[in-house]
Design a protein around this nucleic acid. Structure first.
Lengths: 206, 206
DNA sequence: ATAAAAACAGAACGATTGTTCGGTAAAATA
DNA sequence: TATTTTACCGAACAATCGTTCTGTTTTTAT
């Protein structure tokens, strides 16, 4: 016994298995993050979770299943954090900015599961797994699509490409970001500001 | 370690080994691209190159060496293509635009080695290998740094963060780009246009 | 308390990994 | 020509891979 309960459980009495499942998810996210999916071994993940390899298969059917689970859990959490961040914000550009801040904070400073989500994709696992991941991802990015739609932009502005540019610049940040300089929040505001400077033509603000 | 002779030899009569080396480089770039570095096996690469696995080790000391060689060859080529693209273009914004077009074309439509370059990084190989890769990469991005420096921008504009945003949006494109819609050239011009719209001060400023 | 179910571990499976070895064919050098 | 390099391969190496098997302990429900 004497297992360290680092994670503050929201509910009191969840079945033990559920907590372990979360533990494994966290451990595999950490390994995927540090080594990538292909290079991370099931044994490493099990060790990081403090269990045997065979026990891991009691919770997840395969390594691939583990990846899908990490993606789904991570994107669900990011989605929730993002929706909470833009709640109550009315002005369209401010809403977009708040969303970008939340997105980048999750990507750069969020939990392991958060961070692991945005860095996999290229590998060609099973077609089913990839479809499930992509579906979850598309669903998430649709939030940004709606935020862009609410913006008052110059005639002829391609909102689709604008969204791809903005999200791309944010998503790539993990390749160069190092703590200590600008914070994720500052970076997100700066990036949105660059675009807003030339595209904003609505509302107030002197 | 191996001496870096990354120049594709414009001379006609190269030794047979040099052509094979290039062949292997191309094959491994293709595998890295399709499966990622960790998942791509040396046997797959050798098969794709049409040689036995042991022959491959006659040209490269290790799989890691192969990755470094692909990076160096790819970045050297992209660099050359980019410098050629901006040559003769005088106006700063036009120069930047030409560079972005060349960059994105190489990333999305260029040879296998081109494309493979920008999609690896996270894995933690040997520290030496990673340093060599990063050095080559930084050297390349320094071109963009100079292009940004030549721009006349509003006071207080952070050129460093502007470069990170622009390159990020371009580099992320391979995750969503599919041929048939906008061409890489159109995309690059659009992205630069979004920024220019708000940041361009025209000719020169006091 | 008892029985069923869930959680767990150790050892082993076959397959595949990167790499090396012994030796042969081709090419370059003399 | 003879001889030294270079190019090349098939087989094998130890290590590790994802996964499964057999069985035991712990938790849960009755």
């Amino acid at each position: 016994m004497a297992s360290a309960e680092i994670i503050p459980a929201p509910e009191a009495a969840t079945r033990k298995g559920e907590m372990q499942r979360q533990r494994i998810l966290e451990a595999s996210a950490g390994q995927f993050l540090r080594q990538g999916y292909a290079a991370a071994s099931v044994r490493d993940i099990a060790d990081a979770a403090g269990i045997g390899t065979s026990t891991l298969y009691h919770y997840f059917a395969s390594k691939e299943d583990l990846l899908v689970a990490v993606h789904e859990a991570g994107l669900a959490s990011i989605r929730a954090a993002l929706l909470a961040a833009i709640e109550g914000v009315e002005e369209p550009w401010a809403r977009l900015e708040a969303a970008c801040v939340a997105h980048l904070q999750a990507l750069l400073e969020g939990g392991l599961i958060f961070q692991a989500v945005m860095r996999e994709l290229p590998s060609v696992f099973d077609a089913d797994a990839l479809d499930r991941i992509r579906a979850t991802r598309d669903n998430y990015e649709r939030i940004f699509q709606r935020l862009l739609d609410d913006l008052a932009l110059p005639r002829g502005t391609d909102r689709h490409e604008l969204r791809l540019m903005l999200l791309g610049s944010l998503n790539w940040a993990f390749t160069w970001y190092r703590p200590g300089r600008s914070t994720p929040e500052e970076l997100a505001r700066t990036f949105v500001g660059f675009l807003r400077q030339g595209l904003d033509l609505g509302g107030d603000t002197p």
